[in-house]
Design a binder for these strands. Structure first.
Lengths: 239, 239
DNA sequence: CGCTTAGTTGATGTCACTCAACCCTAGTGG
DNA sequence: CCACTAGGGTTGAGTGACATCAACTAAGCG
């Protein structure tokens, strides 16, 4: 049930069986959440730490002019608000994109498992730091890559992350975002996203229909966008 | 000597005298570093954790086309590579901008002080998470703010951060960056940075000469760029 | 004195935005 | 069964913000 979480954290360290037990016990609460549902809002002081177990969620901030910038895509195995336990209030919003299964761990249990297992403590820290590393790579994209490379790089990243937890089927992954959502990820307008997607389709590089994204020439794509997965700090790979 | 570090971490929690002792002892090594010097390079596996004590450093990544994107400005009190202890290899470079004083703590000592003091452990975690929060805000800037607001927001952030450790003199702060550096922070060309700076100058909003930046109408600037310091998670302020 | 580095300015080009219309599909209610 | 609506996607035309290229100034320095 929480096996995605285990698989994810196993990318960081070898978890003992007692670690596994502690972890699965801690995820005491699991909810089915509808699409477009706010999990934690800006200003909230969450009592529990949320984990995506299935589905797709994202962090974002709104601007006064109504604009929105996505700050992260939260895939199965990703924590939504591990930081809030330390920082207190949320400085951004987390919401589901599609119907998702979301687990949660009480703060007390987080404290408990990090205190008892050095390995688990490390693994959680690793999870937090890789999210930071992804943030840095997105920054590079927004600052210095053009629309097409930014999009390709993002697709490659999603594929890599999903593949790492066994959720990629060859070059094919679930991508429940709308083109407008994608625009808010990439810092573009939805119109421009549309044209860029079409260009990639026409060149036979991807197909994307009904929430299914296929990276048809993944090596070519990686090369084009200069994608190097090392920033994800996966110690080993699934498959 | 390491008082900036203390002042910085005091923004997160109240440190006991034994915490202070442990911290100052841990910073065993202090170096004077010339400008433009790489502290930790991409691919390095640093043995010690570096802290800026005086001066100005930055994180950045290069792109294959020679472009550069700054990922963070490291001010006095900021850690350079706290994450590397967990992630292993650096996925980006850290270098000084101007002549700086840089302290370092051995990994073992980091382990030791976080194990002995819950408060210090929290404070270090807080430091790491606020850097992440800054990263998110930069992402919003690059994605959704125009050149002028991006620049103003960045200036306000620097002012706020320096002020928090007592390094702002009214609206005036040290800004040892060149316009080209600033361009790499903001994801712009140096030419466009130049014009934007001039526009701000002409309107009497800032002055910037010889590494000294003055935010002349700080309230107006904050309002213009919709600057809200809460993402910095300063629990209290200096002054 | 020439060299370098930072900053400035003008001319020109382009990537991506905005606005607006239109299509298609799925869902809803009369 | 059809009219209506709403959301997502698609397309075209016009605009604008920012990039690029290139030249030039001023300051610092061996």
């Amino acid at each position: 049930m929480t096996s995605v979480l285990v698989r994810k954290l196993s990318l960081a360290a070898d978890l003992s069986t007692s670690d596994l037990d502690a972890l699965t016990c801690a995820v005491a609460e699991v909810r089915e959440v509808p699409p477009q549902t706010i999990l934690i809002d800006e200003g909230d002081r969450p009592e529990r730490v949320h984990v995506v177990l299935d589905g797709f969620a994202c962090r974002y901030k709104f601007l006064p002019d109504g604009g929105r910038q996505m700050l992260a895509c939260l895939l199965p195995g990703d924590f939504c608000d591990l930081h809030a336990a330390v920082l207190g209030t949320m400085d951004h919003t987390v919401a589901t994109v599609c119907a998702s299964r979301v687990g949660s761990i009480s703060r007390a249990d987080v404290e408990r498992i990090t205190n008892t297992s050095r390995t688990l403590s490390r693994a959680l820290w690793w999870a937090s730091l890789t999210q930071e590393a992804i943030l840095r790579e997105w920054l590079v994209g927004l600052g210095r890559r053009d629309a097409e490379n930014r999009m390709i790089h993002f697709f490659c990243e999603l594929h890599e992350r999903l593949n790492a937890v066994g959720l990629a089927d060859g070059g094919s992954i679930d991508l429940p975002l709308t083109q407008t959502d994608l625009a808010d990820v990439l810092g573009l307008s939805s119109v421009h996203v549309n044209r860029t997607v079409q260009s990639l389709r026409e060149r036979g590089l991807i197909s994307w229909t009904e929430g299914k994204l296929v990276l048809k020439k993944i090596d070519r794509l990686r090369e084009l966008a200069d994608f190097d997965a090392s920033y994800l700090h996966h110690k080993r790979r699934a498959l």
